[in-house]
Design a binder for these strands. Sequence first.
DNA 1: ATAATAGTTGCGTAAGTGTTCAACTGTTCA
DNA 2: TGAACAGTTGAACACTTACGCAACTATTAT
Lengths: 122, 122
Amino acid sequence: MDTTALEQDRCDCDSIHDDVVAEVRAHMPDDDTLLNLADLFKVFSDSTRVKIVSALLLSEMCVCDIAVLLGMSKSSISHQLRALRLSRLVKNRRDGKVVYYSLADEHVASIFAQGMSHVSEA
Amino acid sequence: MDTTALEQDRCDCDSIHDDVVAEVRAHMPDDDTLLNLADLFKVFSDSTRVKIVSALLLSEMCVCDIAVLLGMSKSSISHQLRALRLSRLVKNRRDGKVVYYSLADEHVASIFAQGMSHVSEA
DNA sequence: ATAATAGTTGCGTAAGTGTTCAACTGTTCA
DNA sequence: TGAACAGTTGAACACTTACGCAACTATTAT
């Protein structure tokens, strides 16, 4: 069985570097992990959510505070907070009618900071 | 002029914490920066692109290699590499008919690693 | 020059996403 | 009890995006 023919079954090109592909495949994280990673970054990929995180980095805030701060409706902020909550990036506590949100852990700050240092470099 | 009335113009709620909002607003990064940050994370928010980055972290590869590795068409890989290139996260060099891609800088690895450590924690 | 091959690009489509609106829950206070 | 308010939720809409197809460019080899 010719391996070149095999590769051609998978892709319409000759000059595949089989050894490189095999080596990389053997050492790459598994699909599930990479999917989770993409999902994590997806949460930070919206400017509204990034602004919310950036705000919570400075202080705990209620939904209304954030809505005023960003000049957006409470509804949209609540929707985004839900996404952040489901990803366990923020937590909340209720005090009477008011729900206060804050960051879930230090990791959020690390990821945010790492991205910031890349952005404010160019 | 009543500040409470002012806040109510902006949001249908009473219990705004004006001091907190003002303080956060004063110390938050500007909108442009946060927009760029969201755009950066957006590149990492797709599983195909994450897989590509994860592969290039291990070795320089040509388009065809990546297509075979991920079991996808050269076209879609090329599309995603374009996105990565426009964000300056990968660079490429041509050797005859073959175009080799590799990561643009160390920052990419840092961001990737930071995210990975958060994902493989739960 | 012609054929073959690696890679790119524009288009169409299907799936996904953010915002708004309206209706809802839950808590407080009179 | 009922009015008022903070917040949540689901549906609908507009908008975005990833993929494959087909046509294209660029490079090599005959």
